[in-house]
Each structure stands twice: as C-alpha cells, then as structure tokens.
Design a protein around this nucleic acid. Structure first.
Lengths: 232, 232
DNA sequence: GCCGCGTCTTGATGCAGGTTAAGGAGCCCG
DNA sequence: CGGGCTCCTTAACCTGCATCAAGACGCGGC
C-alpha cells in the first residue's frame, strides 16, 4: 500500500522519458511540473468513472491501470491496459463534451502522476512542435482502435488471443519466448473480448497443439511462427 | 458518370465550410488550394487500398465513400461511411508507418477533393490554431471508435441497428421520423457488423413490434422513444 | 497444518447470429 | 415485354462462443 512517494529525481527522469513531453524546453517542462500531482492508488481503487468531468490526464509511474466500460447489465469490457511510462486520457482535453469516455481503475497498487489539462492546453496553443507530437500520439491510438475493430469483426477469438500473446511477447523484452502474465487472466480475457472460460480453453488448445506450454501464470511460446499462424 | 467538374465558386464554398479549414487565413487557404486536386469517381471505383503509401487526404464534395477492411478470407467490414462535406484520412499524415489503415471506394459516382499531406503538415507546424482544430477532430474520431468497440462487445446486433437508425435520423434533417436509405442495405449491415440477412430480420422485428414501417428504401419511425428502448 | 476465498479450469448445455439455399422485387437493356 | 442482372427477404439449419455448474488449485491468515 504505502509505496515510497516518487522522489524528485525519479519524477524528473519519468517526465523526461515520456514521449509526449519530449519536445518541451525547460521552461515548458517547469510549467507542466507546476500543475502535476502524484497519486498513490491501492489495488482496485478507481481513478475516474466514464462520464465524469475531465480536467486532468495521467501518466503511470508504477503499477497497472485498466481503462474499461461497463454496460447497463453490468458487463465489463477492458478497453486498454496501461503500464509504467504510458500516458492516458490526454485526448479528452479536446473533446466538446468534456468528460472521460471510459472508467479507470488500478489493477495493482500504483503510482500515477496527473496533469492539469487546461495548463497543458495552453502549452499546446503556443507550441506547434508539442502539437505535432500530440497528433502523432493520437493517430497511433486511432490506428490501434481501427485494428481492434478489425479484430472484433473480421477475426475470431483465437486470433485475438494469439495476437495478444505475440504483442506482449515483443514488448516484454524481445522474443525470449516466455510471457509472464502480470495481469489476471480474467482481465486479459476482457481485453480481448472473450469470457475467462473461453480464454482458458483457447490456451489449452494452443498447449495441445504443442505451440505453447502453460505453467500457471507463465506461458512459454515454443514456436512464435506457428503461434501467429494458428489464428486462422 | 460525367458530373460537371466542381466550379471554383462551389469549391471555395466547400473549403470555407469545412471545419478542418475553419481557422485558416486567406494566405493559408491559398496554400491549401495550391496542392489540391479534384477527382471524379465512378460508382464502385477504388480510391486507395489499405497498406498503400499515404500522401494525400480527402474531402467529399458529392457522392458517398466507404472506408473498409477486408479479411484474409475475403470478408469485408465497412468502418465508416463518408458523405459530402466530410474529410477522411487526415490522421494518416501523423503515423509512423505512412500508409492507409483502411481501403476507400466510391459507393456512387462521387466528386472528391484531395490535398497534399506534406503541404498541410507544413501548415500545421506553424499554426497552433490549426493544430488544435485538428486535435479536436481527431479526438472526436477516437471517441467514436471507442463507442463502436463498446457497441461491438457490450451490445447486441439489434442495439447497433437501432443506434444506426437514430443517428442517421437526427443527422438527416431533424426528427422527421423518416429515413431514406441512400446507402444499400448490405453496406449498412456491414457498417453495423452484421450480415444482410440479420439486418433484414431485425428490421422486420422492429416492424412487427409496430415501431417502424418499412417501405423498400424508406423507413418510417413511428416512435423514436420506443426505438431507442428496443435495443436491450 | 486447515480453512476460506478468489482465480482458474473443465464439462454440459444454450442461443445469437452466421450460413446455406431458395425465391421475390426492381431495373436496365434488348 | 421478357430475360438477366443485382439487391433484398425468408426460412431451415449450424456453430462459436456464452452461460451455467462443479470442482481444482493456489495462497494468506491463524
């Protein structure tokens, strides 16, 4: 629960390596620093709810955040998983209706830095370079969403699982072939839009086909080629 | 096929009422005009394919364009329908991989204006106001995509049809209660991610429930309230 | 150790929407 | 008018994934 509060040096390092802030000069960075707050979140703690008025955006320092939607009948869809070094909810600043389109909650104890949207908007309005960085960031997000829609409508559940495994494989330090599921399986299932039962079954199919080995929260991928090929 | 080529006055009018260009001064608008081309597309004609190198973005003057993806096994998903006055593929300019994420084709004979991406990028890089307009535009798109993911994962087919009907109802001149389907039903079906047969069935359900009347390509909505309520 | 609880797996059954197949309704063109 | 399009509808059947229902496997607390 009580992590040591982010020290100034670490915070500085975090800000400087955040892509969104990469084009800022010292004065601008100082202004960003002026409006920030550091939050400690317990496991399960909610950060904001969909529909809530959005004045701030966020950067994860440690832990893990889920962005999700809940339907009228209580079903939950995890839209995105956010890890250390990643920002979220920046795009909200530009929306006509000024509120969060998703909810956010901590999957584990987390440290999150929040920034003042208004202040950052001011910064944007006289720094074209910053704007272009932001535009780049947003077009990446947009593209990712189009891909997700593609996967939901043109591909099946197995494909989505395989895709998720390959993705986390290459972002978790190269092609070691081993994936440590930091995230609970039911959350991953929701992320790829299937039920936990189905996720379990699909993993077993992959194991039965000799493509992976499941050891609890550790998945060993034997044949990355075959894995990609397995989804359709 | 041979529509009269867009005359200069109409073109001027079109550019001036396009939201994306709303903040431009005369000099900037002149620069935009310098890099544009007017295209005449026949029904069914493709404008670009997914994966193709993207140097231009577009504005529809007349007609109707579909943006879509095709899966390995030949299935097609219409991601968006673009009508007169709307722009598309602007976001592509900012992507690292510089190519279209979707394909585009004309659903009917159309006139489309295309713009030079590089030139516009230059304009952006010294006009923060233009950047902010662009950011607003993109965050709207992003939000729309999140909603679509929500609808695909948390709502059912009937909901999506109802939602589509309500949307087109209010964008086609107020709540008259009558929708003229300018777009073929199989395209609409793909847009809401169902098969034509299912679309047909759902419309009949709505008709059987007395909520709408179907007269070929014309749908009369009797009770907009009940229509909204019918999706779950 | 043993209990209690949350996560994960496995099997049996159900159902929304896809698939297949067979007309019907326009509509263009001879 | 009639034949051949393409688009749409209807009906019978099928299937991928959800749902429901039991366990099994941790793992922390005492």
């Amino acid at each position: 629960m009580n992590q040591p509060s982010l020290n100034p040096a670490d915070l500085d390092h975090l800000l400087r390596q955040t892509h969104l802030f990469s084009s800022l000069d010292d004065a601008q960075l100082a202004q960003v620093r002026g409006g920030l707050r550091v939050l400690q979140l317990d496991e399960g703690q909610r950060l904001f709810d969909a529909g809530q008025n959005a004045e701030r955006f966020f950067l994860v320092a440690s832990g893990r955040i889920k962005l999700y939607r809940v339907s009228a009948d209580g079903n939950e869809k995890v839209v995105e998983l956010i890890g250390p070094g990643q920002t979220f909810a920046e795009a909200v600043m530009f929306m006509q209706r000024h509120d969060y389109p998703v909810s956010a909650a901590a999957l584990a104890a987390s440290q999150v830095v929040s920034f003042d949207g208004r202040g950052f908007y001011a910064l944007l309005s006289d720094s074209p370079r910053l704007c272009l960085t932001m535009l780049g960031e947003m077009s990446m997000r947009l593209h990712a969403r189009i891909n997700e829609i593609d996967h939901l409508t043109l591909q099946n559940a197995t494909f989505r699982v395989v895709h998720y495994l390959c993705d986390t494989l290459e972002e978790n330090g190269g092609n070691q072939g081993t994936i440590d599921l930091t995230t609970p399986k039911n959350i991953i299932a929701s992320r790829v839009s299937i039920k936990p039962e189905t996720f379990s079954r699909i993993l077993r199919n992959l194991a039965d086909a000799g493509i992976v080995t499941i050891e609890g929260k550790r998945i060993v991928v034997h044949d990355c080629q075959a894995l990609r090929a397995f989804g359709r």
